[in-house]
Amino acid sequence: MEKRNSKKWRQQVERKKISMSFCDPVDRLINWIEKQQPPRPGLIPKTGDWRHPYRWIVPEKVSNKTPLSIPEFIQSFQAPFQKTMLKLQKIFPESNIEGRLKLEASLREKARKRGGLENIKDVAGTRIHFINTSELWNAVNIIRKNFNVLDEDNYITIPKDGFYRAYHLTIEEDGKPVEIQLRLPCMTRLAEWAHNRVYKHNISVKNEDIMKAYLGELSKLCYGIIKTRPFLPSELAEEKELEML
């Protein structure tokens, strides 16, 4: 046994203190993370957190099955996207049709979450608004007849996140998937409102549940599933803009 206060004993105690301060691997990781630098442009976070130890992969290696770089990959959707837009404008001349190609940064983020580019169906997206649900259901049948439909998501019957109602079809154009979203204008207004709440205001968990429940009721009203407007919950009484939707 070492004598207390001997040099060797003091060294042992010091070593123990140091090892105790790093005994938790999470603490050690946080310590390491705090010393790291912000990302270099052009590289993408592998884990979603630029501070993660194994945080970088080069964009070209997002997927081995995709030999193209991400900008080239997006560019390869340009012609099928434009062709689909033109076809839709011919088929639905009276309807409001919008479209967009996904941006590089946004696609990288989604590829990271999904583990590759293969499962992303909305690189090219189009959206058509209809005045009522019967027009929307007719449009579903028309699209089935005029396009090669690869996939369908019926969020009208089973709303996504409790309130998001729309009909999504993925069609094939020149070998590329193009998403077509069919919606009512009121649904777009609800989604816009939800985006503003999520990204521009701080939301408490309690309010979030109430808001989603109320948005769920409003989306039922929007699609004619209920006929009477639900009451605004007292917790959200200050949300006058919701009443205006």
């Binding site: 909305d122 979203q181 999520v198």
Partner: peptide, 12 residues
């Protein structure tokens, strides 16, 4: 912010 994604998943 990509408003084509659903709220909560639209940010990059």
């Amino acid at each position: 912010l990509d408003r084509w994604e659903i709220p909560g998943e639209a940010d990059t």
